[in-house]
């Protein structure tokens, strides 16, 4: 049973379905072992946006406050998409490489240990 309810076959309204975001999809992005940002960020972006645009334009404003952000060698960064290893294609639309509504993208930069080497 998907809910214990007094109403038989109760169904809840899905508040966060794609149709409610006026053409955008939500994509979450987190930087592993960098806790300066207390949580992954949530971005409403068009599914047609390329990965490169997400990375170089959308992400920059918030992530670039980190003292190590400018040092990232993006060719060496590794990515995960919804829990699996992922090799992003820079010029391909998000939706065409499996980055869907409410997908989580995580990137890790093992050479960069965070502020004071403390994972911050």
């Amino acid at each position: 049973m998907a809910v214990k309810a007094i109403t038989p076959d109760y169904k809840g309204e899905v508040l966060d379905k794609f149709e409610n975001f006026h053409g955008n999809q939500v994509v979450y992005v987190g930087w592993d072992h960098h806790m300066m940002f207390c949580a992954p960020f949530a971005y409403p972006v068009p599914p047609e946006m390329t990965f490169e645009t997400l990375r170089s334009e959308v992400m920059t404003e918030a992530f670039s406050l980190h003292p190590e952000y400018a040092q990232i060698d993006w060719d060496k960064a590794s990515w995960m998409l919804d829990g699996d290893a992922f090799t992003p294609q820079a010029d391909v639309a998000l939706k065409d490489q499996g980055v869907g509504h409410k997908s989580v993208l995580r990137f890790s930069t093992p050479d960069l240990k965070g502020y004071q080497g403390a994972g911050v």
Partner: peptide, 15 residues
């Protein structure tokens, strides 16, 4: 799940 698909998540509501 039928209960929590209804979560009014403030960040999503803003979006």
């Amino acid at each position: 799940p039928e209960k929590f698909v209804q979560s009014w998540l403030p960040v999503h509501q803003i979006f």
